[in-house]
Amino acid sequence: MAITGETTIHLNNVSVYYSNKLAVKDVTLPIRKQKITAFIGPSGCGKSTVLRCLNRMNDLVQGARVDGEIIYRDQNLYARNVDPVEVRRRIGMVFQKPNPFPKSIYDNVAYGPRLLGVTRKNQLDEIVERSLRGAALWDEVAGDLKKSGLALSGGQQQRLCIARSIAVEPDVILMDEPCSALDPIATQRIEQLMREELKDYTIVIVTHNMQQAQRASDYTAFYSIRKEAESGGVERRWGVLVEFAETEKLFNSPESGETADYIAGRFG
């Protein structure tokens, strides 16, 4: 693969199991520094599962197991002595449905820094403002930071969640279909945000929307499903990484026929 640039995270033969059932098999993939990497593929292909491995959110799922290596800052994140809490303080996450805490906008954004023990009012004020500006939300809410985060519109809520996650100054932001619950205008706003305000962050985004991947990302990884009939008419399915390339290349001249079929809308 003719891919250049500095790598922030490197996945090396990553397989994920849920209760000993294979979910994703043998993913090897670099995540480029300060670039946007999109994960696409049909539902059930394991793209979200891989994303959630990157900051060990899968640890919260009972019976989840990860094989292989995920190298971040020269360290395997799944090594025994690595603390998942510390990992998540460096690799932040934005979820599918906007999930602000039932608290004020200010408290939402200040939550992360407070967890770390930042308590000085002026420091917190500064972080809140910087983060809200970073998520292009400051101008809309500056007058009323005491308002509940739940009172905002869906798109604003999602930008609040982005502000909340950049408040702890992560290296990487993982986005799990961040626009799937939003209308087209709000979606556009988030895409613009990723391109402009968040351009210094390494971003990994899972999306169902191929136009979004095409528009917003620098690199794209395409996942698909493999099946195998088991005894008793049960079918075993797991996800695999089919192709990883620069977005333009993947969409215009995919190497794999399966990729071509998928982006042409022939399945999925």
Binding site: E86, R89, R120
Partner: peptide, 15 residues
């Protein structure tokens, strides 16, 4: 270089 980073543990290792 920032309050957040100063407070954050220096390494990701378990303590």
């Amino acid at each position: 270089d920032s309050p957040v980073k100063r407070k954050r543990a220096a390494s990701m290792f378990k303590s």
